[in-house]
């Protein structure tokens, strides 16, 4: 674009003023440490890094900053709970239970393990961002009540999802990382986003307070249209996407079968007595 010189001058002045203003507007700074444990080659890690960049983007306006460190399970197991506000875990069920026992007061965000048995255990510091196999099966079964011949699967996310600013999230993820956002990447992103939302809104950084907040009060915009929250089982309530041969067909809860806001129509709702 061609600009007149006056506009250029103004732009420079504005940048200077803004820099000054942002310094003045900033409250005392808060730094939040997050740790990722598990296979770094999984897309969950790329998703978590996307979430980190977005958290820092937001944090620049609020005097908050975030770091995402890497640690091995062996390094975390001794159980020093003062280091991190939350753990992003791409681990299997057995490893998750071991880590949960070692860090009972730290929220551990499960972004890859889909085992229903983990939710049945109702472990108080395990937060399952990724949906379970049973949630997916329930979504498929709802869809098939409407379309009996459909051979579909259910997913947490889809790179063609556009509603509820899904388009914007998919676009910026693809632009930043050169790959499409898949289920694990969405879960990694969402795990960091719900943490940064809570830091921004409530100012909580202490792991134990965050654990309680996630269990009892979190209402989270995962860019799937509805507010998402955790069940007593530790599972994140969420809509799922119905896919056939890689093509996005629709959402569950399935309209016309159940109320579309009835997220508890998918998967185990309460802890087994």
């Amino acid at each position: 674009m061609t600009r007149n010189p006056l506009a250029t001058v103004l732009t420079h002045f504005a940048a200077f003023l803004l820099a000054l203003a942002s310094m003045c507007a900033k409250a005392e700074s808060v730094h939040v440490r997050i740790v990722y444990v598990g296979d770094e080659s999984r897309t969950a890690y790329i998703g978590a890094k996307q979430g980190l960049n977005e958290a820092n983007h937001q944090g620049q306006f609020l005097g908050q900053s975030y770091s995402l460190e890497l640690a091995s399970l062996e390094a975390l197991i001794p159980g020093n709970e003062s280091n991190y506000s939350a753990v992003i875990a791409a681990l299997d069920a057995e490893q998750l239970l071991a880590l949960s026992a070692a860090l009972p007061n730290t929220p551990i965000m499960n972004v890859t393990a889909e085992d229903d048995s983990l939710r049945e255990g109702c472990t108080t510091n395990l937060f399952h961002v990724i949906p379970t196999r049973r949630m997916k099966a329930d979504a498929v079964s709802q869809w098939q009540q409407k379309h009996p011949d459909a051979d579909v699967t259910a997913q947490a996310w889809h790179p063609d999802f556009e509603l509820y600013a899904g388009r914007e999230l998919n676009n910026r993820f693809r632009k930043a990382n050169g790959i499409a956002m898949d289920d694990n990447a969405w879960a990694g992103w969402a795990a960091v986003k719900m943490l940064s939302d809570t830091v921004a809104r409530e100012g909580l950084t202490d792991p134990k307070q965050l654990r309680t907040y996630f269990s009892e009060r979190l209402r989270f915009d995962g860019q799937k249209g509805l507010e998402l929250s955790f069940r007593d089982t530790g599972q994140l309530r969420q809509p799922l996407l119905i896919v056939e041969d890689g093509k996005l067909l629709g959402e569950a809860p399935v309209r016309g079968v159940v109320d579309t806001t009835h997220l508890d129509s998918l998967g185990l709702v309460n802890c087994p007595k």
Binding site: L18, A21, A25, E54, F61, L62, A200, D221
Partner: peptide, 23 residues
Amino acid sequence: SANMLHLISVPEHAMVANIVVGA
């Protein structure tokens, strides 16, 4: 996505506050 209201003064165009609201 960031759940904020950005308050910008005119004509200075200074960011006077960032307020976190509902989703």
